[in-house]
């Protein structure tokens, strides 16, 4: 499984977060139809952070893929990294010599903010198995404001296409004029008010 030396790296990074299992996202990201759409869009690598309970399903599906078909896509995975996902998110954003990739995330706020901060397109897929699913509301709101693609488990190839539109738009984060007096909001200011630090 060697990647052509001259071929530029283009990474799709999938993260299911640290707290809950999300096996349906792992299997959706390993479906043949999705892998073909990634290849078609010029992706060279697929990296999946599958969590504590996702290794079995990841290993099972990837071994089947390898036996049935020679993949052009390099598929790798890991469970979780306690020190954060800076490296992986950065790799999806791509270095100066790489093509820009994409992040697919469970709708955890940490990963969404991270992607917005380094401005790599992100596809947000809320976990339908979670009880209090406020993450759907977050995904819907952010999509309506043009910050993310709200991906559905049964139609991830479409989300890959939409993420290219997102890349062209590339809105900045945080919103520059969201705070008081049209400035960026500042928690330190509120804390100083509460403490009586008034200059």
């Amino acid at each position: 499984m060697s990647v052509d030396e001259k071929k530029q790296l283009r990474l799709c990074f999938v993260t299911i977060g640290a707290t809950a299992a999300f096996n349906s996202l792992i299997s959706a990201c390993l479906e043949p139809r999705f892998l073909e759409s990634l290849s078609g869009a010029g992706y060279t690598n697929l990296l999946i952070q599958y969590g504590k309970e996702g290794k079995a399903i990841f290993d099972k599906i990837t071994s089947e893929i390898k036996t049935t078909k020679k993949m052009e896509l390099v598929i790798t995975g890991f469970d979780f990294n306690h020190s954060g996902l800076d490296k992986e998110m950065g790799a999806a954003k791509g270095g100066p010599n790489d093509l820009q990739g994409v992040v697919i995330s469970h709708a955890g706020s940490g990963s969404i903010l991270h992607a917005l901060r380094i401005s790599v397109p992100i596809i947000v897929v809320p976990n339908p198995d979670l009880l209090d699913n406020h993450q759907v509301e977050l995904a819907e709101e952010l999509e309506s404001q043009g910050y993310v693609v709200h991906g559905k488990l049964n139609n991830l190839p479409a989300a890959i296409l939409e993420s290219e539109e997102l890349r062209k738009r590339s809105l900045g984060w945080p919103p520059v004029n969201s705070g008081r007096h049209g400035r960026a909001a500042d928690l330190a200011g509120v804390m100083d008010e509460e403490m009586g630090f008034l200059d």
């Binding site: 977060g17 940490g110 903010l113 991270h114 928690l187 330190a188 804390m191 630090f197």
Partner: peptide, 26 residues
């Protein structure tokens, strides 16, 4: 100053929001 952190997203968000913290005050 006492900062209550939680797992994953809560922590990242809290520390992100505190980026302007002035240690000369706190």
């Amino acid at each position: 100053l006492l900062i209550v952190l939680g797992s994953g997203g809560h922590t990242a968000e809290m520390l992100g929001a505190l980026h302007g913290l002035d240690p000369r005050k706190y």
